[in-house]
Design a protein around this nucleic acid. Structure first.
Lengths: 182, 182
DNA sequence: GTGGGCATGTAAGGTGTTACATGATTCT
DNA sequence: AGAATCATGTAACACCTTACATGCCCAC
């Protein structure tokens, strides 16, 4: 059996911020937890239904014209479940990184080819850094103004710090490869 | 359908270093690619068999006493397959990080509780840093002595740089949470 | 003699993605 | 009118891990 899924908790967590529909949850994840957690529709909708079945969330169907909109609201049992999980020790996922895997075996190709991948990665990181930096700035302001966003801030800080390091690593690696690879 | 698996390439890659049995490959991965790529027996053995079937590797069964030992050797078709993949653009995996997920929703618990997770993570990182640093030192020596290990070095460098950054981030985050969380 | 490392493999089962199906509403 | 967005959901399928099954060999 595989490692216990954390999807359920990611979804109760989202509902702990405010009541939401599946569609909104998807958007919300794409906009704020995307760099460390994201889920597809194939997970969100069934999980939300199960949450309601297990009384961890309460379903309220709103009508938008003739179209329904299913808004889920966390229950006290749901909050309890979330807290219990938050207190549990963090489990580690074996991370996979295809760039590093390719580099590890790059003796088999020319240095210009392997450097191309690294340069591309640096570009990608720079784009992400721009994005995260803006969010970071706004969150720092919010936190200083007394809003309770420290926890959002620390997750974004992880993003900015790590991509900055990756950009550094790209530079160092290119130098090393240029100097020492055949 | 899910993203195309890279398992096959990880295994041909390993065979590009030297002929190996499944058992050795497992050990080898645990010892050197573990921080960015690892595989279980349930993947390695069937993949190796398929590689032989597809003529990407050649199987030689050695006898150790009465016990067989299946050593796989990369073929030229295998090398070609590996090179083609090495030249392809890197695909990104959506990384999941349970610590960040927990922190994101940690308004729901006390700051001492959330800080506990971060401290634990810092400890874990420090252990990894020790481990990686040793390997890094040895590889730097090798590279300076003209051995072709630059590519191994850059992957280890990614490890050390990133965990160092994570340790920094832990410190910063603890401060921020202490100062601003309720 | 027994525990641990060597060595190969399979079965079961959960996880999660992609792609599809469907249709209303709103913006250009 | 047509495209984009809102909105919900399912089916098929690949992927990967865990756990098990099996048995030899060697050192203590």
């Amino acid at each position: 059996m595989s490692k216990k899924s954390k999807t359920q908790y990611a979804n109760i967590g989202a509902l702990s911020l405010r009541p939401m529909s599946g569609y909104e949850m998807k958007k919300m994840m794409a906009g704020s937890t995307n760099h460390f957690w994201s889920e597809s529709n194939g997970q969100i909708y069934p999980t939300l239904a199960k949450l309601a079945k297990d009384k961890l969330a309460k379903l309220k169907t709103e009508m938008v014209g003739t179209k329904e909109r299913k808004v889920y609201q966390i229950t006290s049992a749901g909050r309890k479940k979330l807290k219990d999980w938050l207190l549990e020790a963090v489990e580690h996922y074996p991370a996979r990184n295809e760039l590093l895997l390719k580099l590890f075996y790059s003796q088999n190709i020319s240095k210009s080819q392997s450097i191309k991948h690294i340069k591309q990665h640096a570009e990608d990181c720079k784009k992400m850094l721009e994005l995260y930096s803006d969010i970071e700035k706004r969150l720092i302001e919010k936190v200083k103004n007394g809003e309770r966003s420290v926890y959002f801030l620390v997750t974004v800080l992880a993003g900015t710090k790590l991509v900055r390091t990756e950009i550094d690593w790209c530079k160092d690696s290119i130098k090393l490869i240029n100097q020492y690879a055949k």
